[in-house]
Write a protein that binds this DNA or RNA. Structure first.
Lengths: 146, 146
DNA sequence: GGCGCGGATGCAACTCGGTTGCGTCTGCCT
DNA sequence: AGGCAGACGCAACCGAGTTGCATCCGCGCC
């Protein structure tokens, strides 16, 4: 238990540090949301974030949306479009712009960032098209659901 | 004009043929929807389908959804999740299962199928994970929006 | 340490893509 | 032609995300 709260506290501090370094105001909802993303082993939906926060630091639904948007805008997190029409959010553990693939489990619906999997750097596109960002998503079964 | 209606008629026939061959009932909404997908040069949203049909064969909103779902289920079309939380649908011109990449223009929001662009056949995933489908999406500007 | 202000939060109401339930209609098999 | 399972249309619903606005508070400044 002591171990856990140590980790939790450390993550809160880490979240605050990142927010401050990004030049953003450090507020309770922001550090709580970012700490939740950092703590998670998979990308969280807005709703999962809200749930994770509820017992300790209840945050308004709308605020969660706005905070997540802000984190994405400042490069502290990234947004992953999902098969189920909802977005998932993951902390950018290695700074902004690190392109990586995502794995979505069709069993449990969880999405994880595949930090190890490289995304093709360039693709063939029709004449006149200008590619800017390449996204790679893998569907399948995770180890637990297999 | 005569040319155009010839093409339109030909596409309707083609759509009906495909539906019949898939072992599905041939109904007016189904052939109209599939014909619209075949006629389009980019993947259509549910709303675009409805609009395209309205002048000639008005089809109920809900029916469009159900028809599109069915076409996807039978492999006649495929569904592409978009950045804007809506789905786009494209006809499967070369039979089912042809994995291909998609290009989404951040200017006009259109999504086109890149039939020429190959998707990596395999990717590195964590131990125990079983990949089933790989999706590659490119964001950028299309020739018209550049 | 406290003051002020602009940005952040919370609340309520709203939008919109997509879904569900149900009664009626129709493609297709015989 | 007749019948029935499956498709259609309508209306009501759901839930993710957004907007407007009044209040609050982090943080720079004194």
């Amino acid at each position: 238990m002591a171990r856990t709260s140590h980790r939790t506290a450390a993550r809160a501090v880490e979240a605050q540090r990142r927010i401050r370094e990004a030049g953003e105001r450090v507020t309770t909802p922001r550090s709580a949301v970012l700490a939740a993303l950092l703590a998670a082993d998979h990308a969280l939906t807005h709703h999962e974030v809200e749930e994770a926060l509820a017992p300790v630091t209840p945050v308004d639904r709308v605020t969660v949306y706005r905070v997540l948007d802000r984190l994405v805008a400042t490069g502290l997190a990234h947004r992953i479009p999902g098969e189920d029409r909802t977005w998932r959010f993951g902390a950018n553990r290695r700074g902004p712009g690190g392109a990586h693939a995502h794995f979505t489990c069709s069993g449990c619906g969880r999405t994880v960032c595949l930090e190890e999997t490289e995304v093709p750097a360039a693709v063939k596109v029709p004449r006149g098209f200008v590619p800017q960002r390449i996204e790679l998503t893998v569907q399948g079964l995770c180890a637990a659901c297999r």
